[in-house]
Every structure is written in structure tokens, then in C-alpha cells.
């Protein structure tokens, strides 16, 4: 094996290479890598020890045998939200050749073009009410808690790409000029709540609440 010292390699790549080399590291492998990447020797040693201790919780080449099922857990839902937000950010950055800033001024609000009738129709098709749609419009719901299936329905109903809706939800909360219910108070941007909290406080029917909460599982 080559003994060239290539210490400019990023630590992440060194650890990946170490892990890929053997299922269970031995002294020879650790010695070789520590010599090849001396500034990463401490990190390699820690990693080697972690791999050995990890063995106590099963081997590293097998998936658990039980079926994964068809339901999406909260963890997977939130991971998908993070993926969608990041994907839009990366695509915008590459398209503009620079860093994409998801500020209120930069992000298109896909609800902005809806008139009163369109607002009501959207609420009906999403199986919610105008109050809930207004919370979506004004970005009052924590984006990481919005189920991907619901986001997809919003995209389908509005006829816009997923990334646009995901970016809209991820942008800071805003106050919108058009109002679709009477209020005696001046509107102001509110802090965010979770999807579940939004469902509970929007005055929805029992059937609507059950349906929307069901999207979380």
C-alpha cells in the first residue's frame, strides 16, 4: 500500500476511506492510516474505537429483517421537509450563481394571486378552512412540522412546484395586505406554531382535524 503522506485530505474523506477499508478495523489498518494522515490520527483512533463499540449493537452489513411498513414517521417527515427546503435553496443558488437568501422579499408567495373565491376553494380542496389557509399564506406554521403529503397537496392545488411552496413555508412569517375576515386590530407577523397546534386552534371541524392530524403519521 502506498505510504505517501497526504495530510491535506479533509477529515471526512479520511474517515470514510478508513470505514470503507474493512468491516472491523484492526491494528494494521489504524497504524497505516495514522501514519498516512498524522494530523487526523486522534480522530481516526476515536473513530476506530467507536466502530468496535458499535459492534455490540449488531453487525454493520445487515438491515433489520422486519418490514419497514408504509407509514412515515415524524422523523422521516421532518427529514423530508429539511430536504425540500435545502433542495430549493441549492437550486436557487446554482441558478443565480450566488448564495440564495430566503428573505421575505426574495420568496414568491404562491397564495398571493388568490382572490376570495380562490382562497375558499383552496380551503375546501385541502379539507380545512380559510383561517388555516391564511396561516399557510402568512407562514405561521413551523415548516419542519408540515407533513410532506400536505405540502404536496398544496402544490397540486396551486399548480406550482414543490420547491416554491417549501421555500415559501420556510421564509420568515409575514403580514399580508389582503384580509379575508374582519378584524378590529392592526395585523402583525406572529410567531410560528406547529402543524398540529395550527390544526387545533383554527376552528376546524372534527372531520377536518382528524384528516389533517392523520397526515402526520
Amino acid at each position: 500500500m502506498s505510504m505517501n503522506v497526504s495530510d491535506s485530505t479533509p477529515l471526512k474523506d479520511v474517515l470514510y476511506a478508513f470505514s470503507m477499508a474493512q468491516t472491523v478495523p484492526n491494528a494494521e489498518l489504524l497504524d497505516d492510516f495514522a501514519r498516512r494522515y498524522p494530523t487526523h490520527a486522534a480522530a481516526l483512533t476515536d473513530f476506530a474505537v467507536s466502530i468496535v463499540l458499535d459492534l455490540a449493537r449488531g453487525g454493520d452489513d445487515e438491515e433489520p429483517a422486519h418490514a419497514i411498513g408504509s407509514t412515515v414517521s415524524k422523523a422521516v417527515s421532518r427529514a423530508m421537509s429539511r430536504f425540500q427546503n435545502k433542495l430549493f435553496e441549492v437550486q436557487q443558488s446554482r441558478a443565480t450563481g450566488g448564495t440564495f437568501a430566503a428573505t421575505q422579499g426574495d420568496v414568491v408567495n404562491p397564495f398571493a394571486t388568490l382572490d376570495r373565491k380562490g382562497f375558499r376553494q383552496l380551503a375546501e380542496h385541502l379539507n380545512c378552512n380559510a383561517v388555516f389557509v391564511q396561516m399557510l399564506r402568512d407562514r405561521e406554521i413551523e415548516p419542519a412540522t408540515i407533513p410532506p403529503r400536505f405540502t404536496q397537496k398544496v402544490c397540486d392545488e396551486l399548480g406550482v412546484p414543490m420547491e416554491l411552496v417549501a421555500a415559501h413555508f420556510a421564509a420568515p412569517p409575514q403580514v399580508y395586505g389582503g384580509q379575508y375576515y374582519k378584524s378590529t386590530e392592526k395585523p402583525r407577523a406572529s410567531t410560528r406554531v406547529s402543524f398540529e397546534e395550527a390544526v387545533k386552534k383554527s376552528g376546524l371541524t372534527d372531520e377536518q382535524r382528524t384528516y389533517l392530524i392523520g397526515l402526520l403519521s
Binding site: R57, E63, H66, I68, V72, M80, M162
Partner: peptide, 28 residues
């Protein structure tokens, strides 16, 4: 292909979650 990504990535994540439940169990 946004639709395909949104369909298949959750499956991969669910299989990873299954691995993590054995590697990082609740009592660990």
C-alpha cells in the same frame, strides 16, 4: 424528477430509520 425524489427518498429514510433503531435504541 421531483415526484420520484419525493417518493423514493422517504423509503430510503425509513430503511435507515430501521437501522438506527437497532444502533441507537431508546434505552441507549
Amino acid at each position: 424528477d421531483q415526484h420520484a425524489m419525493s417518493t423514493f427518498l422517504p423509503v430510503l429514510l425509513r430503511r435507515c430509520e430501521s437501522i438506527l433503531k437497532s444502533k441507537v435504541p431508546d434505552d441507549y
